[in-house]
């Protein structure tokens, strides 16, 4: 097993690189869209059910099916990695939007009330109070989404988007476990590393002391 990995070191690293690319771009997009949407939902509670509802529905669509369904679309379906990133971003949105919403609405009410009474504008409230106090929960959501995306990105290989999933599918076709593992192990390692690094970020962010 080990020599298989070593012999194909270069190819595996290339696939890992593709995988990282898919995950990285998707996560950046999901954060760039998800956090502001989460913040928006705290301002427009009426939209909450709609947005979270749509999000949940997306989650229930089996990922392989989603990739397949999106394939015929004009601009998106033209390039496999573009399609994969689109689908991965969609999946990552729910935990991020949800956690952003929960994190912000979970800010201690007396602190929020004091901040408003001190004359903080909406934006100042967000910057000085809501985001810092919600950051722990938001990063927790990003962490969950990232780990899930690393796993989900293996499916991207099914539509030719590259990544470590290629080894998994190839191994399945060849009925060769070692080939499957050549893809699965690096993917698992990637997920664990992301989990650990983001956990570190969470701990760093706990400058927020809880006061009763």
């Amino acid at each position: 097993m080990l020599d298989l990995l070593l012999n194909h070191k270069k190819e595996i690293l290339t696939s890992a690189g593709e995988h990282l690319w898919l995950v990285g771009i998707s996560m950046l997009l999901a954060i760039a869209i998800g956090v502001p949407v989460g913040i928006l939902l705290t301002r427009r509670p009426g939209w909450k059910n709609l947005v979270l509802g749509v999000n949940s529905v997306i989650q229930t669509v089996p990922s392989l099916a989603l990739f397949g369904l999106l394939l015929p679309l004009p601009w998106l379906g033209a390039r496999a990695d573009r399609l994969a990133i689109f689908a991965l971003t969609l999946y990552a949105l729910l935990p991020i939007i949800q956690n952003t919403y929960v994190g912000i609405t979970g800010v201690d009410p007396p602190v929020r009330e004091a901040a408003i009474a001190m004359g903080l504008t909406r934006r100042q409230l967000l910057w000085h109070v809501e985001l810092p106090l919600a950051s722990n929960v938001i990063v927790a959501g990003i962490r969950v989404a990232t780990v899930a995306t690393v796993g989900l990105a293996t499916i991207a290989a099914a539509i030719g988007a590259g990544g470590l999933g290629e080894y998994i599918f190839r191994g399945l076709a060849m009925v060769d476990n070692r080939v499957i593992l050549a893809g699965a192990i690096p993917a698992a390692l990637m997920a664990l590393t992301a989990y650990a690094l983001l956990g570190l970020l969470q701990r760093l962010l706990v400058r927020v002391r809880v006061h009763h």
């Binding site: 007396p110 009330e113 004091a114 901040a115 408003i116 001190m118």
Partner: peptide, 28 residues
């Protein structure tokens, strides 16, 4: 906003920002 900056507000639970030092809370 101007009205609230014109008025100081002190409550029972304090409402101090837990992630800011005493100094930063007062200086805000």
């Amino acid at each position: 906003i101007r009205l609230r900056r014109h008025i100081g507000y002190a409550i029972q639970e304090g409402g101090l920002f837990p992630h800011y030092t005493v100094w930063k809370n007062v200086a805000l």
